[in-house]
Nucleic acid binder design. Structure first.
Lengths: 275, 275
DNA sequence: GTCAAGATGGAAATTTTAGTCCATTAGATG
DNA sequence: CATCTAATGGACTAAAATTTCCATCTTGAC
């Protein structure tokens, strides 16, 4: 018997063979089908202990499906898991690598794929509780200041526009004409500050953010990579945007900005209505 | 030193300590912050190989944060990962069961779906020749003026940012402080004007566009609905963005803006090289 | 340029983990 | 109830992975 090499095949194979399995192997099959990521992340001893079976039973289970042993079967689950969390990166990397005929068609396809992957990854990796928390902070603030520079400035204008449209008091800390310092004087302790910063990131944004932290304002940040001072924010969103040839997509960031603005607007209007 | 036990704390701790780390440890920190699931799923040898460092460096990295070794640190990442996949699976299950709940989950799903649909529709409906033509016009212009207001202003800032980054002469006609008229005086016949306008659309943008048409500048427009004066543009992109409860997505527009900027940048640099 | 402190890579030692084998048990069949 | 077959757990072995240690190299100060 040859082992199924793809995750989907394997999953189907286990479900199909279920009736043929012995008592212990059924216990293991139940777990594998119910919690594949648990199977990917743990070792024989741990699994055996949790399931109340012998470690050797786990090995036999793998062998029953044509694998040489547990490790070989587990690697199918591991790579599936990695694909789930990084499938878009792999896809984009593949596109980046074949630069041979980078015509317009390929460029468009790459960006569309990158955008879709970024949106899906944002959906998968963003806990709803964070969205709720962030919206709550913004809705209860006297004013929301939006802080961003360079690349992420675009997303900031969008957040600002949507907040303003929903009648949430908002202010764009754009540092127009080098006046960021003056603008920062407007930030009060009962305000919220929303910062967006991607690598390499503006030094100014980081400084300004540290400053508002010391003021005691509540803070929300969107970063691609967690780094100081943004990790100290009250709410930190970690967004991974796919990139094509050093050009990062912004799809996930602006969509998240829009979602947050709407959620905040909803909370605000609910409150105004009850007053 | 006691190791951070929660994932968030650990992440913050790594980001905070980053500057203190040695060269190799920085490489490892970069990876850990960028791809925590990769760190959770692989062993020292695999990680060391991919990062081009010694396996012992990985162990030292873990010890630098108060862990007894790699395994102890990795377990923090493993459990975080298991939590993430479990909560995501619960969300999907909950969503499948009751389709009526109009909570945050539905909001996020709607926007992600809308964004994906918009990108695919843009890909399907945008002829490559139009992209080439538009890029050609921008690349051969003395200067590219980007014109937009309100909602589409966000996309304009993105186009402007990317053009500037690619060393294409660009100017943002943002009408800051009601100075749009003055800004329009800068538009010469050998310039290109790029307008973005969605319904209901700013009257100002329409007027300004008519004006630059009369000057004789070459023009490009992105519209959701073809209407005057934009139908008279040399190149007209017709973009249909999906919307969620009166909130239109911007994904297709900004992605198209990025593609056009890159294509223009490529043409410009090719020309400068041959000169 | 020299020296010291710290960082690094590689190999050896250790620990952990997987895989094998076999004695025992459970379950089925006549 | 006897007997045979398949399943099971646990001890043992082999393999793989981690961790330690040390020689070498790098870096920065003087």
């Amino acid at each position: 018997m040859v082992a199924a090499q793809s995750y989907e095949e394997l999953q189907a194979e286990i479900a199909r063979s279920y009736d043929r399995l012995s008592k212990r192997l059924k216990v293991i099959a139940d777990f594998v089908l119910k919690d594949p990521s648990g199977f990917a992340l743990r070792n024989t001893a741990g699994l055996a202990n949790e399931l109340g079976v012998a470690p050797s039973a786990i090995v036999r289970f793998a062998q029953a499906f044509g694998f040489s042993g547990f490790s070989e079967m587990q690697s199918v689950f591991k790579s599936q898991m990695q694909q789930e969390t990084r499938s878009y990166r792999d896809r984009i990397r593949a596109l980046e690598q074949r630069k041979t005929g980078r015509g317009t068609e390929e460029l468009v396809t790459s960006f569309v794929d990158a955008g879709i992957a970024s949106l899906q990854e944002m959906h998968r990796s963003t806990p709803l509780e964070l969205i709720e928390e962030a919206a709550e902070i913004m809705a209860s603030a006297r004013m929301v200041h939006v802080l961003a520079q360079k690349r992420t400035f675009t997303a900031a204008t969008y957040l600002f526009y949507n907040l303003a449209r929903l009648e949430v008091s908002a202010n764009l800390l754009d540092g127009a004409g080098g006046t960021l310092d003056q603008q920062l004087n407007l930030v009060a302790p009962d305000d919220a500050v929303f910062a967006i910063s991607f690598q390499p990131g503006s030094e100014q944004t980081a400084c300004a953010f540290s400053h508002v932290l010391s003021i005691g304002a509540r803070t929300i940040a969107i970063c691609d990579v967690p780094r100081t001072p943004f990790v100290n924010a009250n709410v930190l969103f970690h967004i991974t945007e796919a990139s094509v040839e050093t050009f990062r997509s912004l799809n996930a960031t602006i969509s998240l900005a829009q979602i947050l603005a709407i959620r905040t607007g909803t909370l605000c209007s609910e409150r105004n209505a009850t007053r």
